[in-house]
Amino acid sequence: MREDNQPNITAILGGDAKEFARLVDRYKNVVFTVALRMLKNTEEAEEVAQDTFIKVFKSLKKFKGESKLSTWIYRIAYNTCLDRLKRRSQDRQNVAIEEMNGFEVGSMDNALDNMVRSERQELIRACVQKLAPKDAALLTLFYFEEKNLNELGRILKMKESAVKVGLFRARARLAKIVKEYLEPEIITNYER
């Protein structure tokens, strides 16, 4: 599977450093974002992102093109993050899922509408920070990279059905965290 404007793998394997730098430039933001949201630490995320690209370089000859290059790179990034987490041996406790009804989602929407873009961005980043690494990776790859269930399954070594359930749970957990953040705002809106 070939993506548009994909770096030339043959040239990289032939020793073309510039082409590899192009590959790094192209995928570094997604790899870094996934690492940051899983590890919740900027320095570690940068280190892991660098390790990811070194692993990509070393094992590029093993890439057979069975999946998209981006899927393959994100899988390496995800596994490198998991290794780092294992070394740290501290996994974030997941937030218990609560049923979220349409009314609650609507009230959160109203509260979010009162915020300016930068405030909303800050809020979502703070809330994603509270998610478990796997949920954070799932949502980041699904919404930023628009990966489909099959590709997400390849990256996270999960079945499509498990990805679907995982996504639903991750959204619900995120909504619960956002709700906790917005509680005072929602109450103010309700009182008006």
Partner: peptide, 15 residues
């Protein structure tokens, strides 16, 4: 709702 939430978010950049 999650999609609209992520619409305002952007990818982070390394150093």
């Amino acid at each position: 709702w999650t999609r609209t939430l992520f619409d305002v978010d952007e990818l982070e950049s390394p150093s």
